[in-house]
């Protein structure tokens, strides 16, 4: 392994470590799973232990989109807009079986899994998932964030983006 490679992989590791413990989540709550989400977020199960205790209620400040509850075809465009408003790097968690596959709602109004609308990183099945499985899912997500290739823009690319932004402004 060359020195450069060593440094990038260590940097990757460090950035991943930082990212996985500062998950700013956007809870996109629509249905029954939201009640269980409240249970997880409150003091009894306390997801703050995983560095994810701080919901941001604006997509532009958050890293992880928690899609909690059934998505209907009327709601799908809203979900898509919100996903597009989030900044990179971003992850999506499908919370509950409705978001994974449509669950037991197989009818004219429900989306059969949100992965038909936006890409999904982690599926937490259950109707609703128990808080324990949500915590388990969260740890899996952390693992994924830690192990993935971190997108850190190289300097040249960074400048390019900057100038294109200032051109726009």
């Amino acid at each position: 392994m060359g020195v450069g490679e060593f440094i990038t992989s260590k940097l990757d590791h460090a950035v991943g470590w930082a990212r996985k413990y500062s998950i700013f989540q956007y809870p996109f709550i629509t249905a029954c799973c939201g009640m269980e989400y409240m249970g997880v977020a409150c003091s009894h199960y306390d997801i703050d232990r995983f560095g994810a205790g701080f919901p941001r209620f604006t997509p532009r400040q958050s890293d992880v989109l928690f899609v909690v509850g059934t998505i209907s075809h009327k709601m799908a465009p809203v979900l898509k807009t919100i996903y597009e408003q989030m900044c990179e790097p971003k992850w999506v968690v499908a919370f509950g079986v409705c978001t994974c596959t449509g669950g037991f709602y197989d009818n004219y109004s429900t989306v059969q899994g949100i992965d038909t609308v936006i890409p999904v990183d982690l599926y937490i099945p259950g109707c609703p998932p128990r808080p324990e499985s949500v915590l388990d899912g969260l740890m899996l997500l952390q693992e994924k964030i830690q192990n993935q290739k971190q997108e850190i823009l190289p300097k040249a690319k960074w400048r390019e983006t900057q100038s294109s932004v200032s051109r726009l402004l």
Binding site: T30, A31, G69, T70, S72, K74, M75, V78, Y105, N107, Y108, S109, T110
Partner: peptide
């Protein structure tokens, strides 16, 4: 309203 219409009655 209607963002969570899940067709209970049809189901």
């Amino acid at each position: 309203i209607g963002y969570l219409h899940r067709a209970f009655e049809k189901e």
